[in-house]
Design a protein around this nucleic acid. Structure first.
Length: 103
DNA sequence: GCCATGGCTAGTA
DNA sequence: GCCATGGCTAGTA
């Protein structure tokens, strides 16, 4: 496993309940600002094995990125049950819910 | 080495 | 357009 991948895993693991992070944000913290899609790959291949809180990762618009209907709703439900509010337009208020480790 | 993959993203002819 | 991976292939040894 490469350092980048390890970083990504650690970062995702560090997201507290009720908070979210962005693909790009995670990539940047892991040391490669434009590697957002690699974060996606990590999520795909390692979520289960490393028990990652995959549902706490959303896109920069503050939206759930999953296209599959069932997965989308699973993520929606997981977030709501942690207290994250999702607007009718499907948007999560990043100002309110985004996790910033560097604080 | 090449190439597809992929739940993206900044910036805007 | 970006770019880190994994899988696969041609082409050497």
């Amino acid at each position: 496993m490469t350092p980048f991948t390890e970083n990504v895993i650690h970062i995702i693991r560090s997201i507290p309940e009720g908070k979210v992070m962005t693909y790009g944000q995670i990539a940047a913290l892991a040391g490669s600002p434009r590697a957002a899609r690699q974060v996606v790959r990590v999520l795909h291949s390692m979520s289960r094995k490393y028990k990652l809180p995959w549902h706490r990762v959303i896109n920069s618009q503050g939206k759930i990125a999953l296209s599959d209907d069932e997965s989308y709703h699973e993520q929606l439900f997981s977030l709501e049950s942690e207290g994250v509010e999702i607007g009718l337009n499907g948007v999560i208020d990043l100002k309110k819910y985004q996790f910033n480790p560097e604080e």
